[in-house]
């Protein structure tokens, strides 16, 4: 069982990385483009409000980041701390990032 979990986590880590790579680039490019006319809440909300594209993109971004970060955190905790139950901590981290991130996405769309 343990072996299958590790392999699933390996697959999830790679898959989330594949999703994150283009999204991070798109996010950075958008930021550079957005600040050209001065950065303001109104300007950002004007782009994201009611936009299925930006809402969906950031919802996916957060899903991938929460999975990717949590799996990495689990490895760090297991190797660098004597903590037992690193998986539980990582799972809680994943859920927290998902909840906070999706809440933020809901607020700007």
């Amino acid at each position: 069982m343990s072996g299958r979990l590790e392999v699933w986590l390996f697959a999830a880590q790679r898959l989330s990385a594949m999703i994150l790579a283009p999204l991070v680039l798109l996010h950075l490019a958008t930021m550079i483009y957005a600040v050209q006319d001065g950065l303001s809440a109104a300007e950002i909300l004007g782009r994201t409000r009611g936009s299925v594209f930006w809402g969906g993109l950031y919802a996916l971004f957060i899903a991938a980041a929460s999975v990717h970060g949590a799996i990495g955190l689990r490895a760090v905790l297991r190797e660098w701390t004597p903590l037992r139950g690193a998986g539980v901590v990582a799972m809680a981290f994943c859920v927290a990032i998902l909840a906070l991130g999706w809440r933020a996405v809901a607020a700007i769309t």
Binding site: G3, R4, E6, V7, L9
Partner: peptide, 12 residues
Amino acid sequence: LAPVAGDAGCHA
């Protein structure tokens, strides 16, 4: 493959 797929195996 099974003996090396655990948490102390290749994925570490």
